[in-house]
Design a protein around this nucleic acid. Structure first.
Lengths: 230, 230
DNA sequence: TCCGGATCGCTTGTATACAAGATATGAATC
DNA sequence: GATTCATATCTTGTATACAAGCGATCCGGA
């Protein structure tokens, strides 16, 4: 899914590297992305850094205010809920299409991704589960046979990574998630498109007690921020 | 919805200007966006041009191949259908939420936008209808009370502008569109969220005879391209 | 002591210079 | 005459130099 090899364009690599540092929390929300610092850090001039920042700004991951530099975007709780709401709908759409269009090979791949999650759950390993969970969802995106939709879903999924990650640490969330996955797999393989959509939507959407979990995750991220921001 | 005033950053203005020229067909799909030419055209150096192109590339409007320059993105029929499929779902989601969340003021604004479309239809003026149609749909996006969703919907809507525009010239499409709008307005105002979603989805999605219309629109665009590409 | 304004420094935004790869052109050979 | 390889030119990618705003600091006044 990611471009392989060297794009022979440093700014693209830099964009991905900086994105990685943002979604893994090394550059937390609100963190100031100083062009000179980053240039020194990566051993390049400001030009490719600027281009990388513009790229990231367009995806909403960083915010640039004219003449005032770039910072890692801070998402308000409202904004975050909105994004999860859209994510839920995109996932639902992927599920509906996947249930109708999935091929034999994709069925096998989906099942394999699902079983891999099972292992991580049994090992009680949230980090591994988190990674394999991404693969699982990407299999569904692929199976929708709508490459534009798959790209959009993947993009938003990545955008929400830091918050999703924290949520997985909530007690029992991993087990709940896995049993929901089981249900989703059954529905997709059975070709129950509407039910697959509905189940995926509620798997992703933030409501009820999970809303409170999300808010507390946010608070944690913001306290971490305090140690970084000037 | 658009940023007002001067962003004190030339590259942003340039991005919008180039985007405008793309969606209005002045730079048709496949058109080579030479940095030096554009720099001369706009009377600036290559730097802000490059930044504008990177911005546009991230939205998918232009394609950049490393060391080989940028061209206006060419959308295959398949890709285009995929994008309309996603657009339909986003619109459906906006409609569902709008039916539940629309305020008094937004109801008035929606009705006004709808009536403006009526005038354009009566005057048999596709260009005006096209413009007012955008306003109408944006009112629904706003009424969803999910600003992230509204932004995404608006972005994709803009991305599909050239193709939507050609479709409106199809015989009777304007009248059909208007009567569908009427139905949509009724459902939203009545709070019928599911029906509003379904109706909006089928209003946007490309299927049946409209698929053939789209393909022929594409052919027209591509023949136009022949006069521009080197 | 607190507030306001002007100046200084630092950061971003833009232009230009340089490096490196890609395409085009031309010649030589099959 | 066609094809292939080498060279030349042109374009992109990166570095550096310069310009222009924004913020911080310092000084003066209330």
């Amino acid at each position: 899914m990611a471009e392989a090899a060297q794009p022979s364009r440093r700014s693209e690599q830099l964009g991905e590297e900086i994105e990685e540092r943002i979604v893994t929390g090394r550059y937390p929300p609100g963190f100031r992305l100083d062009e000179q610092d980053l240039a020194a850090e990566f051993g390049v001039s400001r030009t490719p850094i600027r281009e990388a920042l513009i790229y990231l700004a367009s995806s909403g991951l960083v915010e640039t205010r004219p003449r005032r530099g770039a910072i890692v975007a801070e998402l308000s709780p409202t904004r975050l809920c909105e994004m999860f709401e859209v994510m839920a709908e995109l996932e639902a759409m992927c599920g509906r299409l996947a249930a109708r269009r999935i091929t034999q090979e994709e069925q096998a791949a989906l099942l394999e991704a699902h079983r891999a999650c099972e292992s991580a759950r049994d090992a009680d390993d949230p980090d591994t589960y988190y990674r394999l969970n991404e693969v699982f969802h990407q299999q569904i995106y692929q199976a929708s046979h709508n490459s534009f939709l798959a790209e959009q879903a993947d993009l938003l999924h990545r955008r929400l990574r830091p918050y999703r990650r924290l949520q997985l640490r909530v007690r029992n969330r991993m087990k709940t998630s896995y049993s929901e996955h089981q249900h989703i797999v059954d529905l997709i393989l059975a070709g129950e498109s509407d039910q697959a959509a509905t189940t995926l939507r509620s798997h992703v959407v933030v409501q009820g007690e999970r809303f409170a979990d999300l808010i507390s995750s946010l608070a944690e991220l913001q306290s971490r921020l305090g140690t970084h921001a000037a």
